[in-house]
Design a protein around this nucleic acid. Structure first.
Lengths: 342, 342
DNA sequence: ATGAAAGCGCTAACAC
DNA sequence: GTGTTAGCGCTTTCAT
């Protein structure tokens, strides 16, 4: 900006005025400055600007894994809201590693982003308290904060799970298996709770052998997949066999579908399928046979709502931490309506 | 930092030394500073730091749409490389809108990011020339730069398309339809070229009625989907009917599969399927019936390679702009091996 | 081992 | 209309 000022023979401040479109610069001067700018290929340094004005026009988003369609949809929705507010977006994946969440979140704080959206991996968010105190708005997505008083936008995990189980029971099932993620994860825990609640509400006892949950830690999904074959074998052919399955998220539903297909391939025939309802909708749910009945959340709404709330806070909203719960929707496609074997 | 210095009764510079772990601070002083830091909840302002040292430790990534599994996989791969280099990552989706690409790219430049990775939407990248001149490393992904001399990491679109068509011809097909995206898009154009080349190499004339390409502009995919039904009807039942289809990317393959399923539903029966090979692999390709034979690219490798190249440039690599072409791989699953009707 | 002064590139406040 | 000065929060250079 100094160079531009020198070349245009004006003061630095005048250049600043022109660059920012401030009024009070006569047309002739303006032209000279503009010429100098284009001759020098000058472009305002926005980080310097932000340092001065104290607003970054950047927010950060931390998810479990942008590569997962669920989170990439969340990300896309957040992006749109950010763009509408002329904000750039930092993104990062934590892989359910608390240390990585912490590191990324603090790095974003050190960058002085204007706000943070977090799908948390850790079980303690006290480390963000001082940032919150100094005015950083933070909105949690999909899972609530622990030891931290701030906004969260969640799905109705318990209600969704209950509707899935109720649907299977209505189709005549009494022995229903639950294949879910590590219950250390909030959503997985809540869905398992919903499963148990709905079974109990119908007076049905749950045999613990019907419940297959993942192990904790990053990389657990891969390990889960490796052990799924045996689990499914127990669930479908073992002494405590079930007639229906409720799968706890999109990835697990996919894994189960793949295993069922492999069983068919091994048998050289299409084996009778257990009824299946999955938590989370996915793009091909209607294109496999039978179509997969799911409890759909709206990941775009999750991201959109959280980002909108963040910008409300940024605009000065000061009410106490809000917890928004988004409804789920049962989408009937065939797999959940299969009756139990006679 | 000033506040910390005051509280610890040392100079600002000593605080800086402690914060950065510089040698030359006696243990007692260090303790005092550390205490002051934790009492005040101080955290170094990295944007101010970056302004001073001239390195942002941030890079930017622009894709067409993070919500698309192809690009979200690219994004995830870039993220990993960025994290390995202690860099934060800005992401943005351009929706194939040149204006949006330009705006986002320039906003990132104004933030003085250390480098840029771009899946371009525009057809002219001269606007980045001055940034390049002032030393900003830029690597294009998936589509090459136009009017700009910089690195690019691409897939072998022509070769991949040719392998798909060759595969269909080997299965006995002579009349093959091409359903692709807007040929204004580099990848779509190259894949159509590969289609034509391979047909020609086998001495097969291409009836232009066999070629269905999308319209230009953002939102074209939705419009494409709406018109796909009629196009497919012409392609499969019209006077110039084909016996096989080559679909130009993951989204179009999905749309075609959905339309074929709808035709079955309308007919109340499983109609005979045309053979089908799709460009791009996707998660459910093996779970639909029949399994979808695809020409698989490796989106993770695309992102990883591009990011690695960017960091090589950042580390000082000065050789001329490099163009890396990644191979594709034909994955046989059933749909591409269906023979033509007798 | 510690500190003072200058400056990264910009904007705010107040001249003139 | 335009310019001057100070300072955002940090690092660099050079003293002490």
């Amino acid at each position: 900006m100094n160079d531009v000022a020198a070349r245009a023979q004006v003061s630095l401040k005048t250049v600043s005025r022109v660059v920012n479109g401030d009024a009070g610069v006569v047309e002739g001067t303006r032209r000279r400055v503009l010429d100098a700018i284009s001759q020098l290929g000058f472009r305002r340094n926005d980080s310097a600007r932000q340092l001065r004005i104290g607003r970054a026009a950047e927010i950060g988003l931390l998810v479990e894994d942008v590569g997962d369609p669920f989170y990439s949809t969340v990300t896309r929705a957040v992006e749109r809201v950010a763009a509408a507010n002329d904000c750039l977006l930092f993104t990062g994946s934590c892989d359910d590693d608390p240390e990585r969440e912490r590191k990324l979140a603090l790095a974003l704080c050190a960058r002085r982003v204007d706000g943070l959206l977090i799908v948390p991996a850790s079980a303690d968010h006290a480390y963000l308290a001082s940032e919150l105190d100094s005015g950083l708005p933070v909105v949690f997505i999909d899972r609530p904060p622990v030891n931290l008083d701030t906004d969260a936008v969640l799905a109705d995990n318990v209600g969704g799970a209950r509707s899935a189980v109720a649907h299977l029971i209505a189709a005549g099932h009494r022995r229903i298996g639950f294949v879910g993620d590590d219950p250390d994860i909030y959503t997985a825990r809540r869905r398992l709770l919903g499963f148990r609640q709905e079974m109990a509400a119908h007076g049905l006892d749950v045999d613990e052998a019907w419940i297959a949950v993942g192990e904790p830690g990053a990389g657990r999904l891969r390990r889960h997949a490796e052990r799924l074959r045996d689990k499914l074998e127990q669930l479908l052919d073992g002494p405590a066999a079930v007639t229906a399955l409720f799968t706890g998220n999109n990835r697990i539903t996919t894994q189960v579908l793949r295993e069922l297909a492999l069983r068919d391939a091994d048998a050289g025939a299409v084996l009778p399928r257990p009824a299946l309802v999955g938590f989370d909708d996915f793009e091909f749910a209607d294109l496999v046979t039978p179509g997969v009945t799911v409890v759909a959340q709206d990941p775009a709404a999750l991201g959109r709502t959280a980002a909108a709330l963040l910008f409300e806070r940024l605009a000065g909203l000061t009410e106490p931490a809000r917890q928004v719960v988004l409804p789920t929707r049962l989408v009937v496609r065939g797999s959940g309506e299969l009756p139990p074997p006679a």
